[in-house]
């Protein structure tokens, strides 16, 4: 199971990094999403991969699952979700204002620098 999970995480992270290196905002945002997925899985699996173990103390438990990484992942998911929403809105505003979907400086941007509104 470890092999399967870790290679899965690796694949997702690799796709995320590839998309992050694109020059347009939409793939970059998708890349960020994939990367944060991979990171969440890393965090989650750091509590060790167990099946069917209780996270809280019980009398007949043979072992325990670590509840802390699950709490951490929850926080990370909330933050990543909010940030992705913000990035989407930003990209949309940028597209509507400049008419382009590019991450880098554009012709319209240099024009704007010469004559800021």
């Amino acid at each position: 199971m470890e092999m399967l999970v870790s290679s899965g995480i690796g694949l997702i992270a690799a796709c995320g990094v590839y998309l992050l290196l694109r020059g347009r905002t939409f793939p970059v945002i998708l890349g960020l999403t994939l990367l944060s997925h991979a990171v969440n899985l890393v965090l989650f699996s750091m509590g060790r991969l167990n099946v069917g173990l209780p996270p809280i103390i019980s009398k007949d438990a043979t072992g325990y699952a670590d509840p802390l990484p699950q709490a951490l992942v929850l926080t990370a998911i909330v933050i990543a979700f909010g940030m992705t929403a913000l990035a989407v809105v930003l990209a949309l505003r940028g597209y509507l204002e400049t008419g382009e979907d590019s991450i880098n400086a554009t012709r319209s941007e240099t024009a704007e620098q010469r004559d800021p509104s």
């Binding site: 969440n40 933050i79 940028g94 704007e112």
Partner: peptide, 23 residues
């Protein structure tokens, strides 16, 4: 403004990357 939006986008993406690495 348009300049601020563009550099804002770059700033957000860089820092989101940073947050992923932090995690």
């Amino acid at each position: 403004g348009a300049t601020r939006l563009k550099s804002g986008m770059q700033y957000v993406v860089v820092n989101l990357m940073g947050s992923s690495l932090f995690l």
